[in-house]
Simulated assay, not measured.
Amino acid sequence: MKRPAQAIGQPKPLSTRVAEHLSREIRSGRIAPESRLPTEHDLARELGISRNVVREALSQLRADGLVYVRQGAGSFALAPEDSKVIRLDPMSLGEASDLGQLFELRSVLETEAAGLAATRIGPDGLAVLAHALDRMQGSERTRDDSVAADLEFHREISRATGNAYILTFTTYIAGQIRDTIYLARRSQPIEIVVEETIAEHVAILAALEARDEVAARRAMRRHVLLSGVRADAKLPEHLNGELE
């Protein structure tokens, strides 16, 4: 059974629903790679919608790297594996196995980022982390500001690596990380979740202040995996074994 990772909001725009429909057709292979899509006029007539809606949907597919345009020839499908765009569907995080894959990704990315940060972070970066931790521990510890501080803590570690790609990707998945924090807070007593999370961040900061890259990696990896447990993620077996 799917468990939404975030509250259901307003109905999706028609152009988004059309884009999702065409995306499924491309990803399933029903629209073959390199095949020409119907014209805007034909798609509008087939789906019973306006050409403006079709145009917006095709624009979304181009942004997602699933469609490209040949000048004067029309729009063509790309194989999903040829897409140059990374896209994470927030609603897919309703499945425990998908959540597990997200935490597996974080265990690789953020563990190494913490190790790099331990050797590269400066006084200013440590001050940002300390301030973020203070906000997490403050009177608003169970409210949205503490979640924002948590995300800033992780972004600052990525920033401290000096690697722009690590920072970009960590920033990119921040929305998914935020959703899992709220998910954990809904799944378990919030005070327990907050206390555990703060203790893990204290350990990470202590390792960074000591310039101990081994301890920083260990503390970050433990935090990421325990975060997965709190969010009821189905972690891969090799990660579950680390927590036993």
Rank of each mutant, 00 (worst) to 15 (best):
Q176H: 14
L167K: 06
D150L: 06
A160H: 07
P80Q: 03
L151I: 11
F76P: 01
I181F: 08
G125A: 06
R120A: 14
F153G: 04
S187V: 01
E140K: 10
R178N: 01
L183D: 06
L167H: 08
M91C: 06
E81Q: 14
Q176G: 07
V108S: 03
T119V: 09
D145E: 14
A132M: 05
R178S: 04
R106P: 02
L99C: 05
A174R: 05
S97V: 11
A174Q: 10
S92L: 14
G115D: 05
V108I: 11
H154S: 10
A96Q: 06
L109R: 02
L151A: 09
I86E: 14
S92F: 05
L88V: 12
D134R: 12
R87Y: 08
S83R: 07
E112N: 07
T171W: 02
Q188W: 15
A127L: 12
D145K: 09
S107N: 06
H154C: 09
E104Y: 12
T142E: 15
S97C: 01
S139C: 02
Y165F: 13
E112T: 10
D124G: 14
R135V: 15
G100Q: 01
Y165D: 14
R87I: 13
I121F: 09
I166D: 01
T119C: 07
T168I: 00
E112L: 09
V193N: 02
G122R: 13
I166H: 00
V194S: 05
R141F: 02
I86P: 08
L102W: 02
V108Y: 13
S97D: 13
G100E: 03
R87M: 08
L133C: 08
G94H: 05
G100W: 00
D134M: 10
P90F: 06
V147P: 01
G138R: 00
R155D: 14
M136K: 11
T142I: 08
F76I: 00
T180Q: 15
P80I: 01
T171R: 14
V108A: 12
E152G: 03
N163Y: 11
Q137C: 04
A148V: 13
I86L: 15
L99G: 05
Q101R: 14
A79Y: 03
A149Y: 06
R143C: 09
R135G: 04
S158F: 09
D150M: 08
S139N: 09
P189E: 10
S187I: 07
A149T: 07
G122Y: 07
I181E: 10
T170K: 11
Q176I: 05
R141W: 03
H131D: 15
L116E: 12
A77N: 02
R141D: 07
L99K: 14
G175R: 04
G115N: 01
T170G: 15
Y172A: 13
T170C: 12
D89W: 05
L109P: 02
R155G: 11
L105F: 12
L99M: 12
G138P: 00
Q188G: 04
L78Y: 05
S187H: 09
A113Q: 00
T142Q: 13
N163E: 15
E191L: 06
G94V: 01
R87A: 15
I157Q: 00
V194K: 05
R106A: 10
L93E: 13
L88W: 13
